[in-house]
Design a protein around this nucleic acid. Sequence first.
DNA 1: GGTATATCGTCAACCTGGTTGACGATATCG
DNA 2: CGATATCGTCAACCAGGTTGACGATATACC
Lengths: 156, 156
Amino acid sequence: MTEQRFGFELPLLLAGSFRLLIDALHAELAEQGHPDARPSTGFALQALGPDGATISELGRRMGVSKQAAAKAAAGLERLGYVEREPDARDARSVRLRRSARGEELLAASARIFERLRTDWVRELGADRVGALEDDLATMIAGAGGVRLGDLPGWLR
Amino acid sequence: MTEQRFGFELPLLLAGSFRLLIDALHAELAEQGHPDARPSTGFALQALGPDGATISELGRRMGVSKQAAAKAAAGLERLGYVEREPDARDARSVRLRRSARGEELLAASARIFERLRTDWVRELGADRVGALEDDLATMIAGAGGVRLGDLPGWLR
DNA sequence: GGTATATCGTCAACCTGGTTGACGATATCG
DNA sequence: CGATATCGTCAACCAGGTTGACGATATACC
């Protein structure tokens, strides 16, 4: 079974399975009333956190410029996933907050990812999936963590 | 060790470790004389194959339009990774072929990925890395394979 | 052989999502 | 109070994707 594998297969397998999950997620999301959610939508909403954030703060959390964060926020606002309100104690700032629909999206995503993981467990067994997660976490921790917010632009 | 894991961690772990590998690859490539190689560079050169391809063919192999393939080819040409020559038996076509430098880039990438994989083996053990690869391959095969050539644009 | 049809590569226009630089408005520090 | 820093926005640009159109060339068919 484990025949000789080349080093370059590892990244292909990682990218391929990542894409599998994300495609499945968005197919499901589209059916559940979120047809124009994109991978970056969830990332940004996650980065926003339960208490929201200012535009600059969002940019810092995602590792992009505040201008890029402003564009992203405008998109999320247009789709109804975030709302903006003036910041009470800093008249320069804009507070971005997840809307009810934004919370829904995250909740739906969490449910779907949970279900996708059980698919993996059914196929591979709970121990193998657990080992896989542990091993990837080990490698990431060994490298001192990894930034993910700017995934979209980084691949270029 | 294997505490309760949430479903949404799996994609984060996959993306994170993929990014880890790709970042390490390009840090190494930059030191080896390929500072402006990008992830898509290697993908495209790989898609070109040892015998090269026409622009339209490259586009089909990467799952993008021929116009996008032409732009990518122009970039690769500018960096000296591919050469274009007229097609002997079809005056409409342009054959794209990897240059010597292009072959070098692929060879260097293969070497580096091989070394990165041995890092993983040193950290996790050969059996765990093999299991990880087998499991990811299983999931990808179960989904009927996955397209990777258009990774850059797909995340959007 | 001649004509219809398909494909090749390019051009143009547009979209998304990044970047940098500049700038007025507002906070904050000394 | 004044110097300095940060906030959000605007403008210009770039990369890399899209669609539509088009002249040039192959191919298929009568």
